[in-house]
């Protein structure tokens, strides 16, 4: 008996591989993919991986990613690799990058923080720790942990 089941290749679109296991649904929500877009999407969850132990992987037809989406994915899946597929082949491949500062992507979880008002600035955080994720607001010093970052994405 054949023990493998192949997911059919995508013609044009994006593969998001090496996503931290458990984060694929969050990635879909960052991309605003609800399943009602008439796009072929396959999601692999908790797939064995040499590098990560286990990983999630997403394959999305007819969709490219914007800078802001990549920045958000980097926050929750810092090891993710992105492959752009054209005519069934990988034409471009790169990793997401979590910079030392996170600017304009998420809001400070402190409601009483000046960065949540109409001042002419973007919310900004130092990356204090990558694993586990800890951000620190450059304005009010409040630390944001992964659960709060996830909630605000």
């Amino acid at each position: 008996m054949d023990k493998t089941l192949l997911i059919s290749k995508i013609k044009d679109g994006t593969v998001i591989d090496h996503v931290k296991a458990g984060m694929s649904l969050k990635v879909l929500s960052i991309l605003n993919i609800t399943g009602r877009e008439n796009l072929t999407v396959s999601v692999g969850m908790f797939v064995p991986s040499k590098r990560l132990g286990f990983k999630d992987v997403l394959k999305i037809e007819q969709r490219s990613l914007e800078r802001s989406e990549l920045d958000k994915i980097a926050l929750i899946a810092p090891d993710a690799s992105i492959s752009i597929i054209r005519d069934y082949v990988v034409v471009e491949k790169f990793s997401v990058a979590l910079e030392d500062r996170v600017i304009g992507i998420i809001k400070c979880s402190n409601h009483n923080c000046i960065s949540n008002t109409k001042e002419p600035i973007r919310p900004e955080f130092f990356v204090k720790s990558r694993n586990p994720l800890v951000l620190e607001c450059i304005y009010c010093d409040r630390e944001m942990f992964e659960s709060e970052v996830l909630a605000s994405l």
């Binding site: 402190n110 000046i114 001042e119």
Partner: peptide
């Protein structure tokens, strides 16, 4: 200022020294 982080924000908009005399329940 009643909001936390106000002094840091203020410092971004001037080259003159800012001294925080209390920001919300912060510093």
């Amino acid at each position: 200022h009643p909001l936390e982080g106000a002094a840091r924000l203020a410092a971004k908009f001037t080259a003159k020294p800012i001294v925080n005399a209390g920001d919300g329940s912060g510093q």
